[in-house]
Design a protein around this nucleic acid. Sequence first.
DNA 1: TTATTCACG
DNA 2: GACGTACGTGAATAAG
Length: 969
Amino acid sequence: MAMSDADTKTSAEKPADSANRKPHLYLVDGSAYIFRAYHRLPPLTDPEGTPVGAVYGYTTMLWKLAQDLDDADGPTHLAVILDKASRSFRHDLFPEYKANRPPPPEDLVPQFPLIRDATRAFSLPCIEEEMLEADDLIASYARAATRKGWDVTIVSSDKDLMQLVGKCGDADDGVDGGCVDMLDTMKNARIDIPEVQEKFGVLPEQLGDVLALMGDSVDNIPGVRGIGPKTASKLINEYGTLEAVLTAAPDMKKSKMKENLIEHAEMARLSRELVQLKEDCDLPMELEDFALDGIPPDPLAAFLSKHGFTSLLKRLGNGAGSPARPTELDPAKAENAAADAVEGATRQPLPEWPKIDLDAYECVQSVERLDAWIERAFAAHAVAIDTETSSLDAMRAELAGVSLALGPNDACYIPLGHGSDDMFAEKPEQIALDVALEKLKPLLESDAVLKVGQNIKYDINVLARHGIAMGPVEDTMILSFDLDAGRGGGGIGQAHGMDSLAETHLGHTTLTFKDICGTGKKQIPFSAVPLDKATRYAAEDADVTWRLWKVLRQRVADEGATRIYERVDRPLIPVVAGMEREGIKVDREFLSGLSSEFGGQIDALEKQIHEMAGEPFTVGSPKQLGEILFDKMGYKGGKKGKSGQYSTDQSVLEGLASQGVDLAARVLDWRQLSKLRSTYTEALQEAINPRTGRVHTSYSLVGAQTGRLSSTDPNLQNIPIRTETGRRIREAFVAEEGNVLLAADYSQIELRLAAHMADVPPLKEAFANGEDIHARTALEMYGEVTRDTRAQAKTINFAILYGISRWGLAGRLGTDADEAQGMIDRYFERFPGIQRYIVATLEKVRECGYSETLFGRKTHFRNINSKNQAERQGAERAAINAPIQGTSADIIKRAMARMMPALRDAGLNDVRMLLQVHDELVFELPEGDVAAASPIIERVMAEAALPSVTLDVPLGIDIGTGKSWGEAH
DNA sequence: TTATTCACG
DNA sequence: GACGTACGTGAATAAG
């Protein structure tokens, strides 16, 4: 029996061939799964408020397995194996076994019993035994099954279980032995012998020895000190077995490793016993009892319904007739809908929605039908909208059509620019662009109707170019970001994209743009897509957006994200949209002049470099450069990274240059100039919009996990300033005739916030008195301020903001780790608040999984409890930094949202805000307005935290003006 | 596509 | 001497 989207067959309809298949047992490692699901999925709660995120993940996994039933490789038998929460025989071997494992997170605990409920709901057997761990039961069942000639798949990614991969039954009784493999459902990857070899460098049967040598900090398996996976696998490969390694140890050449091997030999043997899987457990249930004989839908439906897993429930297809269209809204009810829409979604569990039906959408091709949709949208007081265009650049895109959604499957597409590309013999029937927009304008501008979009800033800007000032708006992408920043996991940048949101929150796979328009050379513009296809794609997007809005809006209310969403991020949407539309003037001739100048110097340098190297090569190739410097010319200091390539980055080349290697110095110059030319002087010219003559960046409001904005196409947040040559590029950013640019930046805002948040009285005092903060730090730490101590103090101050490590600091200061540690100790001694802040922040993040800014913005850290030390420490440093960087981002965002109204109130209507560079705002304004505008800009920025947060330190603002951005600094 | 390098706060 | 060495970004380039 298989479950599909369409229906659920009963066991009577079971396909005949599956009965005759070679038995294939799936053993699901349930306990391990839910820990992973917990960290990967949003913290959903069911209608009763019980956390069910991990249970949901578990349920979808079982669902997928059940769907594979008819596959040649799918299960014929299946059992879930769980850890019984108690001691195992390993504790008798080693009392400390698993001793330092942290308790499970609070909101995971109530989910454990639900895992059993879920398993029962699927009518699947669930095995757990006192004194045995799930791994041992799995090993024992795997052996029993393979001996009978069954194939076995272990559903897990636990490395201990990888010992079993490839094991085959001994083919006794004339039966062909079955084999074992593993399935990682999260990565959707099969793990067989090659995968184990790739991960550990040894065969599965040798894995136990490797694991014993390397130990495991999470399970508290001691292993041998100083030996990790790399060394362990090397040793096992060299000597074959653990015993052989230990025997050979006394004859190895003198090293720390030899000593450790000798000293910890017994620990290694103990570890070997601990990682050994017990394959001869008594089996509480017979293998035959695991036979899958169809999954009765009723208990499953009851379970899904109880926990509000509505999308799965729909897919179960319980046959209830669902109307493709809702009936017209009752006008009396519509009266209240505005309030509901503004309040955001329902307070009750979400209504049961029909599954997405691409055939339910309407293609609107007449004015009458458009009028009908507009009327209903007014009545609904909320509409999801999506514009389809010819480009990702809102400032250049041509409108192809608009889609609207008013409810589940209640969506339409209004084609407006199709067929203009010669793809059709004749243009399809569609409403004229200007007529349609004229009709839509009152709706899109109505204060009484919320416009909901996925990245709606884009649609705002496209429509703004057609004279429509869309508002008020909501954005599902930003809702998702404010709830789940940092939880995106694998996919970078796409974490809050519609496709992945639809997948996670609606269990729905959307049509992708690629599906519709193709990719690469074969890609066609959206306006060339036939209307039936275009309608399905475009209206689906609006439908999905509408549903996501309901789901996410509810969560925002439940999870305390309202403050950051309503007070910081949502108000910013139209503001940033406006900044993007303004753009900034760039002097093309100036840039082109710089380009030629740089080009000449680059050519000259290249000649010199080739001469010094004695051969021509590609200077821009780190690979070739490394080979020239370290292989051919034999300079010392070549370090190869994991790719086996020499590093030739700035620090390496500077090291060589300081030893008098001219070649390195020339390459550094070459790199600087060619970077400046390709990234800035060349690319910026191309970025000038031919229509406006200005450069329009695109800001992402979900680009940085800490809540900062990011800037792309082009990135205007990394225009050079640190070097004199680079700084010249800023001269190209200019004001229009009669205007000037005004740059206002927060001075030392992150240090000020650190002083406030960590409560450091001497630093707060220094800021209050307007002192030089690094000098004050030097005074506190060394008792005197010299150029040297101030420079060191400055380095340490920044190190603190980034989450300090003695090695990192040592590298920056050019000392060794011990000395750096001494300085850190002294810093903490002088500023104990900083240490308390770090400890408290980490404690909170370890427990909750996220950090928070002063304004309640959450950033999640999935790796904070990782057993990989490097990963974990990276997460710790990021977690220390995020509240500070994030609070700074919140503050400038608040300033931005208030800026234009404040200027307007003062009668300054010609001041335009153009750019944001994290702690700086750039304005363009008539020269005559500078005196009046400066104090307002300064006040809005300085008071941006108020009234929500009152800081113990003042926020200092520096303001400069000039004809160019360079001059304004 | 991935790795490397380097521009910014 | 296991990982890798300060946080957060985006873009260009070489090379697989």
